[in-house]
Design a protein around this nucleic acid. Structure first.
Lengths: 149, 149
DNA sequence: CGGAATTGCTTAATATCGCAAGTGATAATA
DNA sequence: TATTATCACTTGCGATATTAAGCAATTCCG
């Protein structure tokens, strides 16, 4: 009954922040050379991986809130990284697609990005790495099923 | 030699974001009732857990960058949640400490916060939960040792 | 001792986050 | 078919993130 919080050193939210920070540091420094933010990079990757899709799909896949994404897309459109089209049947919706310039940015960074990912994987060990991904999925999935009414 | 990126659905940075988002949602809604942001909550917890300490220590322990923390502290001082004192020997430094009002905010929320943490732990299972914390530590530690030259 | 780093923190600038509200368009339904 | 939801964004706002400067206090060293 006497509730106590876990020490901050064993707090899941804090450890998630730290891990993310650690993982992103080299990626951010890579992207800085291309003038990209990590969010813009995520949008490019999602568009490249899943092809043309609407804003809501991109938001889900890149884990961005629609209001944030809305502004990010404006910037990326100005930079010529993506294009937007009205959806045929539904004028509320717009279809996003990556431009050749956008794909070029991915191509420029893909080798280094893959190397960074491999390095982390190597440091953790393949088993640990996969286990971590699965556990993170589990956290998200469980939480989702609770939230989704 | 032909480098490819992992699918975004198996990308560590993206899964970290999603997990964090899932874990924080209920915590944020709890804190909103007390008029706190999650960062302010982290600062309070660190001050409560480690006692009076300087700004840099708080930044490290709460995983906040100094520029961000600088503003957060100003707000928290205005709210009466913390106090600041000049360090005795080093006038560049200031010592932060939690006020009774700040501690009261922690006390008000501690039960619910612990319950939220327990719920996540229960959903994952104790073993998975501990394994996840350990793996996250590993990510951070390994990355640190790489960065710390 | 005294100028050159370094340290501890703040300010500035730009971008994103998270919530709430607004807008136009489409779907649902009485 | 005239509402009444919903949906797909977009805008506004307050707060934080990240990088780069700036400043004052300390420490290093020649």
């Amino acid at each position: 009954m006497n509730k106590t919080l876990p020490l901050t050193s064993r707090s899941l939210p804090i450890l998630l922040i730290r891990a993310r920070e650690a993982v992103m540091a080299p990626i951010r420094s890579m992207l800085a050379d291309s003038g990209l933010t990590e969010q813009q990079w995520r949008v490019l990757r999602v568009l490249s991986e899943y092809g043309p899709q609407d804003t809501t799909d991109v938001a889900d896949r890149a884990s961005l809130l629609l209001p944030s994404l809305s502004r990010i897309l404006r910037t990326m459109t100005e930079k010529g990284l993506i294009t937007r089209q009205q959806h045929d049947g539904d004028r509320r919706r717009q279809i996003l697609m990556i431009t050749p310039a956008g794909q070029a940015v991915i191509d420029e960074n893909i080798a280094e990005a893959a190397a960074i990912a491999d390095a982390i994987k190597a440091r953790l060990g393949d088993e640990n790495y996969e286990a971590l991904l699965d556990l993170l999925d589990l956290v998200t999935a469980e939480q989702k099923s609770q939230t989704s009414k």
